[in-house]
Design a protein around this nucleic acid. Structure first.
Length: 525
RNA sequence: GGCCCGUUGGUCAAUCGGUUAAGACGCCUCCCUUUCACGGAGGAAUGAGGGGUUCGAUUCCCCUACGGGCUACCA
């Protein structure tokens, strides 16, 4: 395995530039499923090719900046086991990794674009822009664009005489810098997933590159940073495809065309029901998480539940995500990060969006719980139990994990599956045994609890033997007595073999629960 | 509205012109177990529609339909 990874890394290094990929979220809130998957594909690709995985924070929108979101993103990636090699928290040779800290660079490049005649200053106010859109709006064209056809009617350094432009700037009139998109030109880009995609520039508008506050928009920042950070392959969601030609144009205008990364526009993760891309609200509505970890909004104080808190193992979470939109063609679905890395290829990423299926996600988690060692699960299970008020020692917990883990899909299930080992059930499902309950059975349990009181050895075998012996004396089959016993000890129809449970909770507790059980069943009308 | 992307069972999906169209989740039946699971054996369920190309199309092309994305001084 290692050798194939090294080999491809070697080949890549020989024939192409060093693989450097980046995950570039904006710190506006919790990290969404789709974001984690994008990060994961970046990670897998980087590791497979011996490359570098970079985290870049796209915080150019001051209005949307949310305190704590950056740290949350970092924590989430770490939890998933896909921590970046370079980033604001780790440093690196091509930082800074926060766009807000690279402000001057964008300005410099934007000015150069203006000087080269491929961008221009625009002085239109928000109101004027609205008026323009209102004026040109029609049934055929509900959202008019700021482009070659109306550029001359607006207030910018192309339509205005140079003296006027100079005057406005000196007066301190706020302005933005817009790209000057050529008219009627085809722009083609080669996407690794979709192949060639062509756009006509008449459909594009003169996107703002530099905002009035001096910050770049995404369009400028992504190009400048990808260039300066020597990004070789750029993964991003499909929602970016329509603006990709703007980026291609910019790579060209900035004179960096030969260094442009290879693009891969990832399919979207869709809502399980209905249509559209999955959003935080869908999770709230449908009862499953959308964020990796719990996210507390600092403004509203509201907490949105994440996969971690929901009881997911990170291994299962990324395993499930990796296969949502990609597969290696084999029938093996459960794979760890190393195996995923070996098998990952961009060619096998799907073109179509995938609906998220929470049931399948839980199945992955169940598989991972079953495959995890008891020792690995120990601290996680202890935390779950502790939160429910159960303080368990390691030895006992370890034993219980082994006993019940195949019955758990979520970490939380360990509580329901083990709580009766720590405390007697508060309520028992008497109604399940009541219909078949009679004096014979009543007498049996009354007698057997006395028998076990005198039992010398409290082993599973001894308990079971005495149970069978007494059953015979009462002319009853052990089979029909096991369910009542289970209900008395566990409270419900679940859990490992009954005699093991009896053995574990001890003689006294067993007798106590039988007494309570008999009483409950008899009292049930 | 325009532009772009997409479309195999309920969901994730294999197939890279010739298959009885895999596999997984979920669902159903049975076995194991007189609990619940795990495990095992089965089952129901898929190529949006229409044209081409071809000896042969799920696979290639076109049209239609449907779905999605974008259309901000947000990313």
């Amino acid at each position: 395995m290692t050798s194939s990874i090294e080999a491809s890394a070697y080949l890549c290094g020989m024939m192409e530039k060093q693989v450097r990929v980046r995950f570039a979220p904006s710190p506006t809130g919790g990290l969404h499923l789709g974001g984690v998957r994008t990060a994961l594909y970046n990670y897998l690709f980087a590791k497979k090719h011996g490359g570098t995985f970079i985290l870049r924070i796209e915080d150019t929108d001051q209005g949307r900046y949310v305190e704590g979101a950056e740290q949350y993103i970092i924590d989430s990636l770490e939890w998933c086991g896909i921590g970046p090699d370079e980033g604001p928290h780790k440093g690196g040779s091509m930082g800074p990794y926060r766009q807000s800290e690279r402000k001057e660079r964008y300005l410099k490049h934007a000015e150069k674009l203006v000087a080269d005649g491929v961008a221009y200053y625009a002085f239109d106010t928000t109101q004027e822009l609205e008026e323009m859109r209102e004026k040109f709006k029609s049934e055929q064209n509900p959202s008019p664009q700021y482009n070659a056809s109306i550029r001359m009617e607006m207030k910018n350094s192309i339509s205005l005489p140079p003296e006027e432009v100079e005057k406005l700037i000196i007066e301190g009139m706020p302005y933005v810098i817009r790209i000057k998109v050529p008219a009627s030109t085809n722009v083609t880009l080669n996407d690794m997933i979709r192949g060639e995609v062509t756009f006509n520039t008449d459909q594009l508008d003169d996107k703002v590159l530099l905002k009035a506050d001096g910050m770049p928009t995404y369009h400028l920042a992504v190009v400048v940073d990808d260039y300066e950070m020597k990004i070789s392959h750029a993964f991003r969601g499909e929602e970016w495809l329509p603006s990709a030609p703007i980026h291609v144009l910019l790579w060209e205008y900035l004179g960096w065309k030969n260094d442009m990364p290879k693009w891969a526009h990832l399919p979207l993760i869709l809502k399980p029901d209905g249509k559209g891309k999955l959003s935080k609200r869908d999770g709230d509505k449908l009862g499953f998480p959308v964020f990796a970890m719990d996210w507390k909004d600092p403004k509203t104080g509201e907490t949105t539940k994440g996969f971690k808190k929901m009881g997911f193992l990170p291994e299962a979470f990324i395993n499930m995500l990796a296969l949502l939109g990609w597969n290696d063609g084999s029938n093996e679905e459960v794979a760890d990060i190393v195996q995923l890395t070996e098998r990952f290829t961009i060619e096998r990423i799907h073109k179509g969006g995938a609906k998220f299926d929470f049931e399948k996600a839980k199945w992955f988690n169940g598989e991972w719980i079953k495959r995890s060692s008891d020792a690995y699960l120990l601290p996680l299970v202890k935390t779950i139990l502790f939160e429910k008020g159960i303080q368990a020692n390691d030895e006992k917990t370890l034993m219980l994990i082994g006993l019940v883990k195949e019955r758990c899909q979520l970490l939380q299930d360990f509580h329901a599956q083990t709580s009766y080992f720590f405390e007697s059930p508060k309520v028992i499902d008497s109604s399940s045994v009541k219909p078949k309950w009679d004096d014979k059975k009543n007498n049996f349990f009354t007698a057997w609890k006395k028998t076990i009181a005198d039992l010398g050895e409290w082993t599973t075998e001894q308990i079971e033997n005495s149970f069978k012996l007494d059953a015979g004396k009462h002319e009853l089959k052990t089979g029909e007595l096991q369910l009542p016993l289970r209900i008395m000890l566990v409270g419900g129809k679940f859990g490992p073999p009954v005699f093991e449970i009896a053995q574990n909770i001890g003689k006294e507790e067993t007798i106590k629960r039988i007494e309570f059980g008999i009483k409950s069943i008899n009292e049930l009308s």
